[in-house]
Amino acid sequence: MKKLTAILFLGLFFSSCQNLQKREISEEELLQQELKKINWTQVDEFPSVATCDSIKDSATRKQCFFDFLTVTIQQKLDLDTLSILYPQIDTIQVKVTVYPDSRLEFEPQFPSDSLAYDKIKIDSILHSRLTDFPKINPALKRGIPVKTQFVLPVILNVE
């Protein structure tokens, strides 16, 4: 009886060890599973500036950043003759890129019916005026700085 019990116990032991080995997941499989869980189209934290960093609510901090950026761009463009040269344009769409190293890039977005000369001229004015920005902290994804892009409507004729 003891032999039968011992054989039965050993048989169960070896079969359970085989089941455990089958359940082990390779590092590559685990990595692929984790990568599938990540939403690559959203960031964990949006870019920010020092004046907005103390805000705890992420939606409010995001709005603070966008408001700060819009007002700063408007102030820098108010110093120029953009509204005098192009009185028909009251709002311009500006694509903003924030790089992981905190660099900023601005690119005006134009309707398809805009003249090429106007596009070049406005682009030139934007690049000359939109310099010396305060430090922007890049967006974070899982604690790592990442590149983000968004389009801001900037009102030119603020009166």
Rank of each mutant, 00 (worst) to 15 (best):
150 F>Y: 05
131 T>I: 15
40 W>E: 15
54 S>C: 04
54 S>P: 00
44 D>N: 13
136 I>K: 01
98 V>S: 05
82 L>A: 03
87 P>C: 09
90 D>Y: 12
65 F>K: 05
77 L>C: 05
158 V>T: 13
129 R>C: 08
72 T>I: 11
52 C>L: 06
1 M>W: 14
51 T>A: 14
153 P>G: 13
144 I>W: 00
84 I>C: 00
53 D>K: 14
37 K>C: 01
102 S>I: 00
99 Y>G: 01
5 T>R: 10
1 M>G: 15
140 L>Y: 11
152 L>T: 10
98 V>N: 06
61 R>I: 02
134 P>I: 11
85 L>M: 11
98 V>Y: 04
141 K>R: 15
99 Y>V: 03
127 H>V: 08
87 P>M: 10
49 V>Y: 05
6 A>V: 14
120 I>E: 07
51 T>E: 14
129 R>S: 15
44 D>I: 05
148 T>Y: 06
105 E>L: 05
136 I>C: 01
81 T>Q: 06
119 K>V: 12
76 K>S: 02
120 I>A: 11
22 K>C: 00
80 D>E: 08
86 Y>I: 04
107 E>D: 09
6 A>R: 14
58 S>M: 09
145 P>Y: 04
61 R>N: 04
118 D>R: 07
52 C>M: 04
117 Y>P: 00
72 T>F: 12
127 H>G: 10
124 S>W: 07
29 E>N: 11
10 L>K: 03
18 Q>R: 13
109 Q>D: 04
39 N>M: 03
106 F>A: 00
108 P>M: 06
117 Y>M: 06
31 L>P: 00
1 M>D: 14
90 D>G: 13
21 Q>C: 08
58 S>D: 09
101 D>Q: 02
55 I>C: 06
71 V>S: 13
20 L>I: 12
41 T>G: 06
2 K>S: 10
151 V>D: 02
34 E>V: 13
53 D>A: 15
